[in-house]
């Protein structure tokens, strides 16, 4: 039971992150990808990548502000899954939709701003996925954390990509944008200090101790 308690959250996270892919495969074999499957796969993988990116960004604040330590361990899998879906999204667009047509790709890069920022977001995620291993963490030392701040940029670019893709109704992309901005704001020093003070008042000294440790972790 203790095992389940400890492993429960990661299992849930892995299962949750793989479900969209499983569904996509199921829908593929059951002819449920609409009359325009390539475009539909592009939408679905892109949306899933963004959701997972938001979840990855939520892990640290969940720990810092609410003391949910287990969330920290989920940051890496969420980030990697986000990259997996972003890669599927990118390959579907470039390979299946545009079929590596140089003219179309040139047009996408130079004329389609949405494609350009989408591509930039993907490029920002790429080194993070590569350096996600323990070995790279050790090798990069302090710079690892610096490098991995690129995820903030990737998330913002992904939101802009989404905003520029919708016709007129920007509610959904802006909701994601608001989520990302809140999650980034929670990382500001002033916000963290305020929350630490609040926690101090609420939980007393014990909380303060923990807060210091958490501060270190966040840096």
């Amino acid at each position: 039971m203790v095992w389940l308690k400890r492993a429960g959250l990661p299992i849930l996270a892995h299962a949750g992150a793989l479900t969209p892919l499983a569904l996509l495969i199921w829908n593929f074999f059951h002819d449920q990808l609409t009359a325009n499957p390539i475009q539909y796969i592009t939408f679905r993988t892109g949306k899933t990548a963004l959701v997972l990116l938001v979840l990855a960004l939520a892990c640290t604040p969940l720990n810092v502000l609410f003391g949910l330590k287990q969330a920290v361990a989920l940051r890496k899998p969420f980030g990697l899954y986000a990259f997996l879906y972003a890669a599927l999204h990118f390959v579907t667009f470039v390979g299946l939709d545009y079929q590596f047509d140089p003219e179309l790709l040139k047009e996408a890069i130079f004329k389609k701003r949405y494609a350009l920022v989408g591509f930039a977001a993907f490029l920002a995620l790429l080194p993070l996925a590569v350096t996600s291993t323990r070995g790279w963490m050790r090798r990069l030392g302090k710079n690892w954390k610096r490098l991995h701040r690129l995820v903030y940029l990737a998330a913002l670019l992904a939101v802009v990509h989404f905003v520029w893709l919708v016709k007129s109704d920007v509610r959904e992309p802006l909701a994601y944008g608001a989520g990302v901005i809140v999650l980034l704001a929670l990382r500001l020093k002033s916000v963290r200090r305020a929350s630490a003070k609040l926690r101090e008042k609420l939980v007393g000294k014990q909380g303060e101790c923990r807060q210091v440790a958490v501060h270190e972790d966040l840096r």
Binding site: D97, E107, K112, L165
Partner: peptide, 11 residues
Amino acid sequence: DHPRWSQSSER
């Protein structure tokens, strides 16, 4: 051109 979709080709 259209800002989002390629108008030079179609599926």
